[in-house]
Amino acid sequence: MYWTGLSPDEARQFLANKDKSKRDKRISLKEAVQKYVKDGDNLGIAGFVNARQPIAIVHEIIRQGRKDLTLSFQSAGLAPEYLAGAMCLDDSKNSIKRMELAYLAHEAFGISPLLRYLTENSLIELEDWSNYNMSARFKAGSMGLPFIPCRSPLGSDMLKTNRAVVQDCPFTDRPIMLLPASHPNVALVHVQEADIYGNCRIQGPTFTCPEIAMASAHCIVTCDRLIEHDDMTRYPNRISIPYFSVDAVIEVPYGAYPGNSGGLYYYDEKHIPEFRNACEKFRKGDRAPLQEYYDNYIFGVENTTGFINKIPLSQIQYVEKIEPGIRLDAAYTVLGS
């Protein structure tokens, strides 16, 4: 048996020695990535497909360059696709070694061109799981358990290449799957609202963001809005991620753009295909559009504000207008500067 990221005992030990104080955790995204994301790390990617993907964090990682990464996620789209694109363009600067995944594609927008490119050319190693498996693995990690039992997907070929163990249940005598916990080195999480200590309030589905945040050794949170601490703690049972599992909080409006951030902005049906088409062209041998995309939107800007400045205002207004998700709108005061 091998562990990627931390073993359960290492994860426990790490947390025992961690500063859990309630302190102001605001730093710049640049510093957060410098401080917490290392070459060779296992990164837990939060969100679900293209909803609340940690796009701002991933763009910053790409600007700084990180190598030999392991990416762990249930279903993801843009975040691993951006990292894959960076690897395709210059693998001496950014590279993915391995993915532990259930699904990488873009649902209605289409398949992931670069997952195809990287796997069909044997450039990365994969470990396939189901959505429930990856979610339950993070959950086991967040529960402090070395494994978790699960009833699916028994009978699937996934079990031939992943680390799941099938054995007879000691109580029912029927086969059951045991999944190893996942403890990434760093969780990359985007939420709608956080306070300066790292408490997060997720609007809409929580996906597996709380589990990933609490299973990981470190956790970087970007939020669309920083809000007053008193407004956060007015609804304690609506706090999705508690402050002491978070290391860095950065207010990054549109930090999940061009994906969906529930209650704030919907998927950008123009920009996602623009990026995906550049990836598809790369897969088919035309490198220029992908290079141009990265030069323009990632390397050519300092941060997410620079990226968003390149998108027509009308396009941003449209994704805000059509977003149907609700949030506890009147329940907070946006933190002043």
Binding site: S75, L101, A102, Y103, L104, I111, S112, S130, N131, S156
Partner: peptide, 9 residues
């Protein structure tokens, strides 16, 4: 292909 997602579950 994209992978299982939740289909196998």
């Amino acid at each position: 292909l994209p992978g299982s997602g939740g289909a196998s579950d």
